[in-house]
Simulated assay, not measured.
Amino acid sequence: MILNTTAAVLVLEDGRTFRGSAYGAIGETLGEAVFVTAMSGYQETLTDPSYHRQIVIQTAPHIGNTGVNDADDESAQIWVAGYVIRDASRVSSNWRSQGDLATRLEESGVVGISDVDTRALTLHLREAGAMRMGIFSGPAAEVSEADLLAKVQASPQMSGAQLAEEVSTTSARLVPAQGERKFSVAAVDLGIKSMTPQRLSERGVDVHVLPATITFEEIQALNVDGVFFSNGPGDPATADDQVELLREVLRAKIPFFGICFGNQLLGRALGFGTYKLPFGHRGINVPVMDRTTDKVEITSQNHGFAVDAPLDRDVPAPHDGDFGRVTVSHVCLNDDVVEGLQCLDIPAFSVQFHPEAAAGPHDSSYLFDRFLDLMSASQVAQA
């Protein structure tokens, strides 16, 4: 691969700029600046719908060395708004590689920048907090920095953004159970990654992947054994329709499991608030304690919002929908952020991280088995 020498500039909302070389498509892009601490899995990151309208900064210094392939995508397209790296690999050296990353980005129209001091940029965001950013290359970079800054500051913020419907499937599809069919699950696609229904399918679950606009009556018509809410982008405070849907699921006592955005929506359905983190959790190395077992897991995470729930155990759900007691089941050991909720009187739980581990460690894969146990217990109770 011949590295691009076209000039590019990165402009932050607070006026700080970084100059480098174009990487991927030439042009301009705007979005929220977020940094990812993963040392691997850049292809899974790029195709994660949760990064919609965000410009990803890779803290790992060398990117593109394993190329790209057709097997590791987590969705049908690259979702990031832009891409920032330090050193672009000159070669793709992996037996599974089917092309190089820069070409894939260019073909997908993703504007990126390389030769940036990503360490300095990340440290700045850790101190100043997540903010809007723009990448400009080619003719777009030739205007004054004041004009570029004005574009960045005029772009929409992530707070208040309703994005799940923009990344969700528009029609239902079935991921069939592998081997003996044990259960069926309605998976509400708020930005779902392909590995999630696969993890359920591997355990004998028929997974109905459904649009974010699905109704409770439509879910009931499927006669499923459980309901799942996926990860996804945007501000959970905007997802009123999905919160009301979830409350109907909880009132019907249908077993529920949610991850990431789904965890935030369970929090809202139970009556808790949500808030924006200063710079979020994004990587595959975040330590979390499962308070139900006292075991520590290294988790894969990608979220900029969190549930505002007390860490006290057995707290009555604030919502007046008679959901009983709830406890914070998981907590982040870096900053005490709520990483999971477990209802004690209805069959529902959720986690803020990604047990499907694409990419990432497999410490939390047991959570899918816990969901199956919940559905099995519900069937026994109804017998």
Rank of each mutant, 00 (worst) to 15 (best):
W95D: 14
W95T: 13
Q178F: 09
G15Q: 07
V91D: 13
F349K: 03
I85S: 02
Q198S: 11
T17K: 06
H52M: 08
P211S: 11
S365P: 00
P287R: 09
T122R: 14
F323T: 02
A377W: 05
I284D: 12
A358N: 14
F18D: 05
E127Y: 05
D14Q: 12
S92Y: 10
A317C: 13
E202P: 00
L46H: 10
E32V: 12
E74Q: 15
V68T: 15
V80R: 07
A187I: 00
E180Q: 15
W95E: 13
K295D: 12
V68F: 12
L46E: 06
A359E: 02
G204P: 06
D373H: 07
R90E: 15
V36H: 11
E244D: 13
S92Q: 04
A164E: 12
P211C: 04
T59F: 10
R199E: 14
L125W: 10
V167P: 01
R119G: 10
E217G: 08
G134T: 06
S194M: 08
D73H: 11
V243T: 15
V91R: 12
A7F: 10
Q220C: 08
V351G: 01
D241H: 13
E297H: 14
V337Y: 01
I259A: 10
E217N: 07
A8P: 05
N69M: 07
T29D: 00
G273M: 03
D240H: 14
G271W: 07
T17C: 09
D206G: 05
R313M: 07
A102M: 04
L149I: 12
S378Q: 08
G20K: 06
D235A: 01
L149T: 09
G64D: 12
L12D: 02
W79P: 05
E142P: 00
M1V: 09
G82H: 08
V243K: 12
E32R: 13
P355G: 09
V36N: 15
D336R: 09
I78H: 04
E28I: 00
